[in-house]
Computed example of a mutant assay.
Amino acid sequence: MNFNFLSPVSDLVLAHNELLPTQALGRKLKIHSAQNGIPDLEGVNIAILGVLENRNDVNYIGETFQLNEIRKSLYGLFPGSWNTAVADLGDINKGETVEDTYFALKEAIAILVKQKITPLIIGGSQDLTYANYRAYDALVPMVNIVNVDCKFDLGDSAKPIKNNSFVGKIILDEPYNLFNYATIGYQTYFNSQEEIDLMDRLYFESYRLGDVANDIKIVEPALRDAHIVSIDLSAVQASALSLNQKYSPNGLNGKEICAIARYAGISNKVSSFGIYEYKPSKDDEVTSMLIAQMIWYFIEGYNFRVKDDDFSNENNYQKFITLVDEQELIFYKSAKTGRWWIEIPFLSEVNNKLKRHTLLPCMHQDYLDACNNKVPERWYKAFQKNCV
């Protein structure tokens, strides 16, 4: 496997790792080191990739950064009773141009995902999500992205790509592979009314911070349906972060962002996970520890993945049919996990994006709403997207 654009984990971090107890997570990882080179990825489930690229940050002023503190924090945590094998492949350095970095990241993700290894990206600016998305061009026909962010990042797609406008590029650049885009934790005052209206017109999903804080479980179906999960640290409230990282007094707290990371890990569909907009500062311990705990929870979730979406055998599920406004809605409940799905009908007369009946993850509450003659919003949006 050609990963010659990766630089090894620094000797400083490896020396720190040697001093840790043998039970620590860092002692159980396969690590890319200068001495031993890139580890054998046989049997590896998750591969950590640092990306030291931040030049498309709208506030970029030439500063560089490294991920040593995050690795130190992560390596020092203790794993759960996991069967999940994790490798740390080191970092992708800045290329000659940002496009070179995108290309290297895209290649690395495509290689890993083909091998059924989930890349876990720790990055600079969030526009790297565009390269992550492009890695799927040859992998899956339609991609679902979840962005955990206080903003939609739609931006002006006519201008060059930046970390606050990469979603516009994802929507408008060919090949068109985006099926669903969901934003978790958006804060209305950071988004123009035009952007909010555009999200509605495109039938994309958005979960306001207040709703997420009120009941974190509402985001689980969106994460269960995602291929790519991208987290912008500006979605986290300032009190949970170090000096340079603080953005807004309101935001997701540490527990909520870790719960979201765990939901992403549990999802059978999530095949790449990224944490972006890391900005180190002198008092860095809090941010690096929070990122380490988010990674820990993602791995923890991954370890508890259950194949519960096989509906070919009727012993695996219960089926429920309801009528809403003369529209038949068909729900499935997994016998293994109790998770729910709703069927999106196949419309033969429309050139729809889905070529068969598709099951959309949903909540028990959606079924209860349907019983009370209320159409579930996720179903409505997916149905409308199919009619386009």
Rank of each mutant, 00 (worst) to 15 (best):
D232V: 07
V236E: 02
V236Q: 04
Q237W: 00
A238Q: 06
A238W: 00
L241T: 05
L243P: 05
N244K: 10
Q245L: 11
Q245I: 11
Y247L: 03
P249S: 03
N250K: 02
L252M: 10
L252R: 09
G254Y: 03
K255H: 11
K255R: 14
E256H: 04
I260D: 00
I260S: 01
I260Q: 00
R262G: 14
Y263K: 00
Y263G: 01
A264L: 03
G265E: 04
I266H: 01
S267A: 09
S267E: 03
N268G: 03
N268H: 07
K269W: 03
E277G: 03
E277F: 02
S281R: 07
D283P: 08
E285F: 10
V286G: 02
V286Y: 08
V286D: 09
T287K: 01
I291W: 01
A292C: 11
Q293T: 11
I295Y: 01
W296M: 14
Y297Q: 11
I299L: 12
I299W: 08
E300N: 15
N303V: 13
D308K: 08
D309F: 09
D310C: 10
F311Y: 11
E314D: 15
N315E: 05
Y317N: 03
Q318M: 09
Q318S: 13
Q318T: 10
F320V: 15
T322S: 13
T322F: 06
L323A: 12
V324K: 13
Q327W: 12
E328I: 15
E328F: 08
I330V: 14
F331W: 07
Y332D: 05
K333C: 13
S334L: 01
T337A: 05
G338M: 04
G338W: 00
R339P: 01
W340L: 00
W341N: 05
E343Y: 08
I344M: 05
P345K: 03
F346L: 14
F346I: 05
S348E: 15
E349W: 12
N351Y: 10
N352M: 00
N352R: 03
N352F: 02
K355D: 08
R356P: 01
R356C: 09
H357S: 11
T358M: 06
L359S: 12
L359E: 10
L360V: 10
M363C: 10
M363E: 09
Q365F: 11
Y367F: 15
